[in-house]
Structure formats: C-alpha cells, structure tokens
Lab assay of single mutants.
Amino acid sequence: DNLVIALHSYEPSHDGDLGFEKGEQLRILEQSGEWWKAQSLTTGQEGFIPFNFVAKA
C-alpha cells in the first residue's frame, strides 16, 4: 500500500495543503513533483504534502 510516516510535523501554508504531526501515517493518493496528494489515516482529511517530510512506512 502507499503508506508513509511523517518525519516532521507540517503546518499548511496554502489552501489545499494537508497539515500533519510527526509520526502520523498517511496514504499517498498521487505522486507528482515535490507535492504529493495524501490522506491522513488519523483525520481522514486529504490534501497536498511536501514529499520530503515523509518516508515509506
């Protein structure tokens, strides 16, 4: 599955970004460039995340 774990917390800075906490698990929905579309397994919310803040779970 496309699961990743957050290496750092991220505060959203643009509409459509997904904020998350360090250690949170996310499911990657789309990989494109440096911003990936993801869904939080904690909150169920979707949005874009910086790819370098996460690692394969």
Rank of each mutant, 00 (worst) to 15 (best):
G16W: 15
W35F: 11
H14K: 14
R27E: 03
F53K: 06
E34C: 15
S40F: 02
F51P: 14
A57W: 14
K22P: 04
G23I: 02
E34R: 14
R27Y: 10
F51E: 07
D17S: 09
A55N: 06
S13L: 15
K56F: 15
G33S: 06
P12D: 03
W36P: 02
F53E: 03
L29F: 06
A55R: 10
N52D: 12
E11L: 13
K56R: 11
D15Y: 11
L3Y: 11
L29V: 08
K37G: 01
Q31I: 08
A6P: 00
Q39P: 00
A55M: 13
K22N: 03
A38C: 06
S13G: 10
E30L: 08
F20S: 00
Q39M: 12
L26P: 00
N52W: 15
G33A: 05
G33R: 04
T42W: 13
G47S: 01
G16C: 13
I28A: 00
T42S: 13
K56G: 10
I49N: 02
H14T: 09
L7G: 02
K22W: 04
W36D: 00
G16S: 08
D1I: 11
K37D: 00
L26H: 00
K22F: 06
G23E: 02
Q25M: 15
K37S: 05
T42E: 10
A55I: 13
E11W: 14
F48T: 07
H8G: 06
H14P: 02
Y10V: 06
E30N: 09
L29N: 01
G33N: 04
L26D: 00
W36G: 02
L26I: 05
Q45A: 11
Q39D: 00
S32A: 11
W36K: 00
S32L: 12
T43S: 10
A38D: 00
S9Y: 07
G19T: 06
E46P: 02
H14C: 15
L3R: 06
K22H: 05
Q31W: 13
D1G: 11
S13Q: 15
D1S: 10
E30R: 07
T42F: 09
S13Y: 12
L3V: 12
E21P: 03
Y10I: 04
A57M: 15
G44P: 01
Q25H: 13
F20H: 00
D15G: 09
I5V: 11
S13A: 13
E46H: 08
L18M: 08
